[in-house]
Amino acid sequence: MSLVSEFKAFINRGNVLDLAVAVVIGAAFGKIVTAMVDGIIMPVVGMAMGGVDFSQLFVALDGNDYANLAAAQAAAAPVITYGAFIQTIIDFLLIAFVIFLVIKAYNRMNPPPEAVAAAPAEEVLLLREIRDSLKRPGL
């Protein structure tokens, strides 16, 4: 089989296309959740915490004090932006929670098929027949 025909067979598999669709939809879904977190949830959390903007939380490693993160970055100061880390953790938790809810709703709408009992093996049927014949009176 040539390389081109192997590649065609690989691409034509349903799993590859399903995975590609899932990645694209997942990326778009991540943008939606990030916009929701940045625009709706984090301002409320910041207001509840006294007006804190998590994206502006940082520690300057050079020992100087800066008015804000932009000033520290303009001075080329090494900074640890722990606020961005907190924001990313909240994004992750919200994305995971929403995916959990979607999967839970999907599973509720599409219950797993009931397991069909496998037919007993021929040997089992024969042994049952022998057992039943031995139980009959008069033998």
Score class of each variant (00 low, 15 high):
Met1Leu: 13
Met1Ile: 15
Met1Ser: 12
Ser2Pro: 13
Leu3Val: 11
Glu6Gln: 12
Glu6Gly: 07
Phe7Gly: 00
Phe7Tyr: 10
Lys8Thr: 08
Phe10Ser: 00
Phe10Tyr: 01
Phe10Arg: 01
Phe10Gly: 01
Phe10Trp: 09
Ile11Val: 13
Asn12Ser: 07
Arg13Lys: 09
Arg13His: 08
Val16Ala: 00
Val16Cys: 00
Leu17Met: 03
Leu17Phe: 04
Leu17Tyr: 05
Asp18Thr: 07
Ala20Leu: 04
Ala22Gly: 11
Val23Gln: 06
Val23Thr: 10
Val23Cys: 08
Val24Phe: 11
Val24Cys: 04
Gly26Lys: 08
Ala28Cys: 15
Ala28Trp: 13
Ala28Arg: 09
Phe29Gln: 09
Gly30Tyr: 12
Gly30Met: 10
Gly30Trp: 11
Ile32Thr: 05
Val33Gln: 03
Val33Gly: 02
Ala35Val: 06
Ala35Asp: 03
Ala35Gln: 02
Val37Ile: 09
Asp38Ser: 05
Gly39Thr: 05
Gly39Trp: 09
Ile41Val: 07
Pro43Ile: 01
Val44Thr: 02
Val44Cys: 01
Val45Asn: 00
Gly46Met: 06
Gly46Pro: 09
Ala48Phe: 06
Gly50Tyr: 02
Gly50Phe: 02
Gly51Trp: 01
Val52Cys: 00
Phe54Lys: 00
Phe54Gly: 00
Ser55Lys: 11
Gln56Ser: 04
Gln56Leu: 07
Leu57Gln: 00
Phe58Glu: 00
Phe58Cys: 00
Ala60Val: 03
Asp62His: 04
Asp62Met: 02
Tyr66Thr: 04
Tyr66Arg: 06
Ala67Leu: 07
Ala67Ile: 08
Asn68Arg: 07
Ala70Ile: 12
Gln73Ile: 07
Ala74Met: 07
Ala75Trp: 05
Ala76Cys: 08
Ala77Glu: 00
Pro78His: 10
Val79Ala: 07
Ile80Cys: 06
Ile80His: 08
Tyr82Asp: 02
Gly83Ala: 02
Ile86Gly: 00
Gln87Pro: 08
Gln87Lys: 13
Thr88Tyr: 10
Thr88Cys: 07
Ile89Pro: 07
Ile89Leu: 06
Ile89Cys: 04
Phe92Arg: 10
Leu93Val: 09
Leu93Thr: 05
Ala96Leu: 14
Phe97Asn: 02
Phe97Asp: 02
Phe97His: 03
Val98Cys: 11
Ile99Leu: 15
Ile99Glu: 13
Val102Glu: 08
Val102Gln: 11
Val102Trp: 13
Lys104Asp: 11
Ala105Tyr: 10
Asn107Arg: 15
Asn110Cys: 10
Val116Ser: 10
Ala117Leu: 15
Ala117Cys: 13
Ala121Gly: 14
Glu122Tyr: 14
Val124Pro: 12
Leu125Pro: 13
Arg128Leu: 14
Glu129Val: 07
Ile130Gln: 09
Arg131Lys: 13
Ser133Met: 09
Ser133Tyr: 08
Lys135Glu: 03
Arg136Glu: 03
Arg136Gly: 01
Arg136His: 07
Gly138Asn: 10
Leu139Val: 14
